[in-house]
Design a protein around this nucleic acid. Sequence first.
DNA 1: GGCGCGCGCGCC
DNA 2: GGCGCGCGCGCC
Length: 356
Amino acid sequence: MESDFREMLLLTGLDHITEEELKRFKYLALTEFNIPRKTLNIADRTELADQLIQSAGAASAVAKAISIFQKLNYMDIAKALEEKKKEAESKYVTNTKKRGTQKVENRSQAKNCSVASATCSDKDFKGHSATEVCPQVKPQKKQMVAEQEAIREDLQQDSLVVMVLKAMNPFECETQEGKQKIFHATVATETEFFFVKVLNAQFKDKFIPKRTIQISNYLRHSYFVEVTSSSVVVDVESSHKVCVPNNIMKKAGETPKISKLKTLPCGTIVNGLFKVQKITEQKDRVIYGIHDKRGTMEVLVLGNQSKTKCEEGDKIRLTFFEVSNNRGKIQLKSGPCSIYKVIKAAKPKTKVKSVE
DNA sequence: GGCGCGCGCGCC
DNA sequence: GGCGCGCGCGCC
């Protein structure tokens, strides 16, 4: 139970806000929680989640976080957190009835899904909970075990052997550790592909398409893999190369259909090229109405990052955007490390007037 | 049996 | 990588 709350506070809540939003969250957290201002200010997302839980207890921390998100009008996150909270609570009720038979099942489920995947559904991650895996642990020890479990779930002890499909150019990004040069990549195993956020541009020489690499000490988020400066990336001998089937390679690179996007869980990472049919510029954000043959949806870009003016009929290439629920409406939203590029539509060929 | 959807394949 | 086609499956 505790580990569920820990997980949702970070993965469903704090991971989905921008740096600016994080500051605003901390500002309101000052009154909701009994945490010194100084401690709050220097906390990154993970530390903040820890502080909130230490201050109020896991369940109460989540409830208070929901109330803060509501005050800030981040309704999509508030709603998503609320849903996760309800799920966890109802799961707990069911599990107290079924305990014992569920134990083995959960363990094998956790093993089967030891790696984050762009194709792995949200449901696959719900089996992880220290309280279920170790139901015999005494209450006072429970919290500690839960904490260790939570850390283990995020920082992967195993290593990931994958083929690099694509690596984008590094760019400057405001991360939890300040301004950093980062880049995005797509990698795959024989069975699935992952989007990867690499927080250290020095790894660029390892992320060469078609090469097989081994990544250890990486962070596993629900819908992407994060390689940090403390991760280890090494080349894999040619005799152990990963062979990625063509269909996975193709799927990893193509633009998902809008109708499909609307069915994906919040937080799913989306890359793709979309046609723009409407642009709404506001003070600190731009909303792009995108469309394909099957549907339309909105892309919310926070901050003013557009260099090329986008007009109706142009296309935008989104990288590392997230599926987000804005008051019941599914949209794509930029996160702290999202990038996008405007691709101007080819100008209609003007007929060359014949020389008279 | 019709329909919609997901998936794989092949052409561009 | 986009797009369209065809196949198979599940649902009603």
